[in-house]
Design a protein around this nucleic acid. Structure first.
Length: 561
RNA sequence: CGGGGCGUAGCGUAGCCCGGCUAGCGCGCCUGGUUUGGGACCAGGAGGUCGCAGGUUCGAAUCCUGCCGCCCCGACCA
């Protein structure tokens, strides 16, 4: 590709709206442009990367027996009503205004539709169907460039099996394929067991990349590989103690003391001697949640313990429920259900609120004083706590979800009546699995992991070109002739070459653009070295520069490639 | 949806508080010339509904009202 004949609009300045490195660099390198919030055009250079990623995905999907489809983005609303997902998606689903269509945010329904009546025998199973298609989701808040868009490219695959054993096999195949895909793309990633949420399945795993731009918070153990979303993650943390001698409880005047920190400072005690109270409303009834010290209630864990109908009590409700405002609530005298975090199990000599403003109570013995108390794991894991599996230190960080594999089961096949006949002529719903990969997320995450202050650093598998050939002064005939010949020769050797053949910009511009675009190697043709029959070869990753004989160039490039 | 910020040429921005003449600067772009190993130089030039609509005023980029768009934090998220 010649620079002069192609649209590669690089930018010297950082675009005002871009914040994270991948977004900034994708714009500066002339690979994407925003059309509207969360909607991006891929320019030729960026689209080349998209194709490289897609090709890797395609190869690995085909390797596990996947068959590539192309499903419509425009879907009849009726089929989405049939599975109840118009309502389930709510505002996230784009609706077409002048016809009863929706824009597909995923394709389970369409796969089920085509399977119905066509995949009718156990002999037809299993099937792996996949596509790489644009998805539409009306995200309330697109962000981080291409990472969360309203329109995005997704590889989505679906397995059709006769039973759950078959599903296990298909699921395992995808697990292997996904690891190969992300490995080949050169990404550092890890795998998290996750709850499958609204997809309505049983087992699922998420493939994640550590990144400050991420939207999930993950607890990760480097030693044993334990990884879990903090919504469900567990850890070993210091618990409250049960002292051999249990004091009797007593009221303490604590004017204006509200937070646990203030209480500890006021009484000169450790936060492991305190219990924080949070009041929730579950099915219209108050529940007191007791946490050790400053631990935060994990509302996901609370939700799965009590069921979905849980909300924090409003500040106005607190006084009527407990007799006090937030900051003075506690278990003693609380007349409703009380659930304490496991770390508080059977603790005594505790300090907590008195259910009377500006008073706390000391000497609480949960075992003695709160006979109906229940215990559960309700806390949120924090950085530095210990792994429940291997006791080494957990790291808590933000991460981006690259891919997700689900065991769906029969939810969609039952809703849409997608059945097959077994060996005995008996009818069963087809068992489905669903497997997604965010194509642009691979793109962005790769850059997040591979850049420096000059620009992107591509490695071979995703690099839009193998070689960035630079003719420094194209007005010099020797340079022009040599670099033009090299351009042809290198391509004949099978290299993909980007040729900076501009004759109206100075050397510095070309060097800086080359570093910004970040091809793995740069071949620099300049008058100085050419006098001696030599050219310079620069490796982008290491910044290693070699001046070598023209005659030996191709051999050296083949070694590097 | 809640909180905060922003919208001026292709990009980055000044001016706005405190209204006033042809809206300024850098980059980029065009023409000519010089230059060519790390974002060159000289000369000339093009490019603006100041987000949109309404209002106040003799006069609005600037003040007021409404709307739209974009970014960040939160909520939400398959």
């Amino acid at each position: 590709m010649r620079f002069t004949k192609n649209f590669i609009p690089t930018l010297k300045e950082v675009p005002a709206d871009a914040v994270i490195p991948s977004h900034i660099l994708m714009i500066r390198a002339g690979m994407v442009r925003m059309l509207s919030a969360g909607i991006y055009s891929f320019l030729p250079l960026g689209y080349k990367v998209v194709r490289k990623i897609s090709d890797i995905i395609r190869e690995e999907m085909n390797a596990i027996g996947g068959q590539e489809f192309h499903f419509p983005g425009l879907n009849p609303k009726e089929i989405w009503d049939a599975t109840g997902r118009v309502e389930a998606f709510g505002d996230i689903l784009f609706h077409v205004k002048n016809r009863e269509y929706v824009l597909a945010p995923t394709h389970e329904e369409i796969v089920a539709f085509h399977a119905k009546g066509a995949v009718t025998s156990y002999k037809d199973l299993p099937q792996i169907w996949y596509q790489i298609q644009t998805k539409f989701r009306n995200e309330p808040r697109p962000r981080s460039g291409v990472i969360r868009g309203r329109q995005f490219l997704m590889k989505d695959a679906y397995t059709l099996d006769k039973d759950f054993e078959g599903l296990d096999v298909g699921y395992a195949k995808h697990d292997v394929a996904y690891r190969k895909i992300f490995d080949r793309c050169g990404l550092k990633y890890f795998v998290v067991g996750a709850s499958s949420g609204a997809m309505g399945g049983s087992k699922s795993e998420e493939f994640m990349v550590k990144s400050d731009a991420g939207e999930d918070t993950i607890a990760y153990c480097e030693k044993c590989g334990y990884a879990a979303n903090v919504e469900v993650a567990q850890s070993v943390a210091k618990s409250a103690t049960r002292h051999s001698e249990s004091k009797s409880y007593y009221e303490i005047s604590t004017p204006n003391v509200k937070s646990i920190d203030e209480l500890c400072a006021f009484l000169k005690i450790d936060e492991h001697e305190t219990a924080k109270s949070r009041v929730y409303i579950h099915d219209g009834k108050p529940v007191l949640i007791l946490m050790l010290g400053n631990d935060e209630v994990n509302e996901t864990k609370l939700g799965s313990l009590l069921g979905s109908n849980v909300r924090p009590a409003h500040p106005e409700e607190l006084k009527e429920i407990s007799g006090a405002d937030a900051g003075s609530i506690g278990p003693i005298g609380f007349k409703h259900r009380i659930i304490a975090d496991n770390l508080l199990k059977d603790a005594n000599n505790l300090y907590s609120g008195a259910n009377k403003n500006d008073f706390h109570i000391g000497g609480i013995d949960l075992k003695r004083d709160i006979p109906n108390i229940e215990y559960a794991d309700l806390r949120t894991v924090e950085n530095g706590e210990l792994c429940v599996r291997c006791s080494s230190t957990l790291e808590v960080f933000k991460a981006i979800e690259l891919g997700h594999i689900f065991k769906l089961g029969t939810k969609y096949s039952e809703a849409l009546g997608v059945n097959y006949l077994d060996e005995n002529g008996k009818e069963h719903p087809i068992v489905m699995g669903s497997y997604g990969i965010g194509v642009e997320r691979i793109f962005a995450c790769y850059i997040e992991q591979n850049y420096d202050d000059k620009g992107i650093i591509w490695k071979k598998p995703l690099a839009p070109f193998d070689i960035h050939l630079i003719g420094l002064n194209m007005k010099n005939t020797h340079v022009a002739e040599t670099s033009n010949k090299l351009y042809d020769d290198l391509q004949k050797e099978g290299f993909e070459v980007l040729f900076d053949d501009r004759n109206d910009v100075s050397a510095g511009v070309k060097f800086n653009d080359a570093d910004l675009l970040g091809m793995p190697v740069q071949v620099i043709v300049g008058e100085k070295n050419l006098k001696d029959g030599k050219v310079e070869l620069k490796q982008r990753v290491t910044n290693e520069k070699n001046v070598l004989e023209l005659s030996g160039l191709i051999k050296k490039l083949k070694e590097l490639n």
